[in-house]
């Protein structure tokens, strides 16, 4: 699991405080209301009644980047859109995370071909991505799985997420 400095540059850094904060951060990921293409619809579906992201405390979609913790890049990033995504990312207050949802966000997906002039092939070229959720588009379950993976990343391991009362299914083999 990739180690990432969760709160860069906090003025006072206490291990205990960080531990508690990370636990809380993991269980209260507010995504930004922000969709690019097809995956955004599945993101909405994940927030809707059937799948209900709110169960994990992640259902508070904030429209303003200032109040959100998580950017879900859901869809193809066009070259015209890329600087805007970077701006939005930088306007989010630390600590913040990014999920690349869908194949387009991971690598340009099916739209990356020889002669492609319009898209940025991969979110990781412009933002530090924490979790990748492949699929075209991924099912809402896949996105929830991505959320849970991100929570584990924040708490540095599933076992340390003491509030979690179920086991995340980890796909093996790769």
């Amino acid at each position: 699991m990739a180690e990432k400095e969760i709160a860069p540059g906090a003025r006072v850094q206490l291990a205990v405080v960080e531990e508690v904060l990370n636990l809380c951060r993991a269980n209260s990921l507010w995504p930004m209301t922000f969709g690019l293409a097809c995956c955004a619809i599945e993101m909405m579906a994940a927030g809707a009644s059937r799948f209900d992201l709110d169960r994990f405390g992640a259902g508070v979609f904030r429209p303003s980047p200032r109040q959100s913790d998580l950017m879900i890049v859901a869809g193809t990033i066009s070259k015209k859109m890329a600087p805007i995504i970077v701006t939005l990312w930088e306007q989010m207050p630390a600590p913040k995370w990014c999920i690349a949802m869908g194949n387009c966000a991971i690598s340009g997906g099916p739209f990356e071909y020889d002669g492609q002039y319009a898209i940025v092939p991969g979110t990781d070229l412009i933002l530090p991505v924490d979790v990748y959720v492949p699929g075209c588009p991924p099912r809402p379950e896949g996105l929830i799985q991505g959320f849970l993976a991100l929570e584990d990343l924040i708490t540095k391991g599933e076992k340390r997420n003491v509030l979690r009362r179920f086991k995340r299914k980890i796909v093996k083999g790769r």
Partner: peptide, 8 residues
Amino acid sequence: LRIGPKEV
């Protein structure tokens, strides 16, 4: 028709 916060 959802559950709302549940897991925490």
